[in-house]
Amino acid sequence: MKVCFFGLGSIGKKHLKNLCKIAKEKDINLDVHAFRTRKNSLELKGLDKEIYSKKLLEEDYDIIFVTNPTFKHFETIKMMENKTKNMFIEKPIFDNINYDITDIKFENGIYYVAAPLRYTGIVDKLKEIIKDKNVYSIRSICSSYLPDWRPNQDYREVYSAKKELGGGVSIDLIHEWDYLTYLFGFPKRVVNFQGKYSHLEIDSEDLSIYIAEYEDKLLELHLDYFGIRSKREVEIYTKEGTIIGDFIKEEISFTSDEKDKINFLANEDMYIAEMRHFIEMVLDNKNNPNSPEHAYNVLKLIKESEKNESINNNLW
């Protein structure tokens, strides 16, 4: 299997390591290329060839991994659409919605956009639990401390800190909207308030709060970069009680007498589980749980909700 990585930063390296693990399990011979813009050898385990010119890219890759900065995704996908039939695209699919997704040939293959939270077990179990519930409201939060994300790097220099590179919690933490739309569908209306409020030395937004309206319920979503104690969970309020999915503790708990707690102590890292499923999609043409079209619609939801009209100051 011949693959090519575009971008081998922290997430690209993680995917390469996991790809090598899964390939060994499945007895797949890998030929791994990496397209580079800087001539500094990586010397990564599992990497066979570094390419520094577009002219030297081959024409028949089995998989392209688009793991470079978000603002480069569209041009990378366009450049490689005729050189492969399968792509693994890191989230978010693009940095904005000004691109025409219909310009890309997403056909006759697997084009998957990363959604690792789907592989914790919690999301699918929640979907099963709520299918016969009358949900009144949902409250979701993802709060963590950006300087702790990449301990060996200056947080001020990573893409998350830089708006022009696609940084900011609204896009960086797009996983929350991915699983929320998977569970509850797309809302009919969303408002969003965001900005830079903390001491962090970044120019991207470090706080983003959404209120979403459905036909029969409301949803609140809180995202931030400054939570000293990490918190990632969803609370689902129903007639029978509250269902709480905690992605850090890897458990689902209930306030009703129906159940006490369901634990999901992971057998493996969610990124490894995701890579395994992706390779199985490519080999066996399995169903794609996160297509480019769905990922683009999630991005569109986020970007269009940013266009809030000013609140009338004469309300009082």
Rank of each mutant, 00 (worst) to 15 (best):
N313D: 13
T70K: 06
A295T: 01
R156L: 02
G241C: 10
E58I: 05
N68F: 00
N40Y: 12
N134F: 11
S230R: 13
D224P: 03
K131A: 15
D95Y: 13
K78Q: 14
D203G: 07
N192V: 05
K55W: 08
L183D: 11
A34D: 01
E25N: 15
I171P: 04
E75H: 06
L19E: 03
I63E: 00
D124H: 14
A273W: 03
E268G: 09
L183K: 11
V3K: 00
I28E: 02
E215P: 02
G227A: 08
G245V: 10
T37V: 13
G121W: 01
D62V: 07
N267K: 14
L117M: 13
A273D: 12
T70P: 05
L315Y: 15
F88D: 02
L223G: 01
V282N: 07
E43V: 03
Y182E: 12
V169S: 04
A34K: 01
E58W: 06
L126D: 13
M87K: 00
E59L: 12
V32Y: 00
A212H: 02
L16I: 06
E157L: 12
T120P: 10
D260M: 09
L30T: 02
H277C: 10
Y112I: 06
I97H: 07
D257I: 08
M1F: 06
N108H: 06
I64Y: 03
H222F: 13
F278Y: 12
S53I: 01
G241K: 08
S291F: 03
K72Y: 13
M270V: 11
R232Y: 12
I89L: 00
S230Q: 12
K307V: 01
A34C: 03
F106Y: 02
G227R: 09
K105N: 11
D62Q: 11
A114F: 06
P116F: 04
E240C: 07
Y225V: 00
K24S: 07
G9M: 03
I89F: 04
E258G: 10
W316Y: 15
E213H: 10
S198G: 09
V234L: 09
I174M: 03
D100M: 05
K217C: 05
I236F: 11
H175Q: 15
K14N: 15
T67I: 02
N40A: 04
Y237I: 13
K13W: 07
N308D: 14
I141F: 12
E81R: 02
K91N: 05
L180K: 05
I89N: 00
M79C: 11
L165Y: 05
N285F: 12
D246N: 15
T37M: 05
I244V: 14
V113T: 08
K78V: 07
K72E: 07
V158A: 09
E258R: 11
M79G: 01
K307P: 11
I211P: 06
P151S: 04
L183C: 12
G241Q: 04
E128F: 13
Y112D: 05
K14I: 12
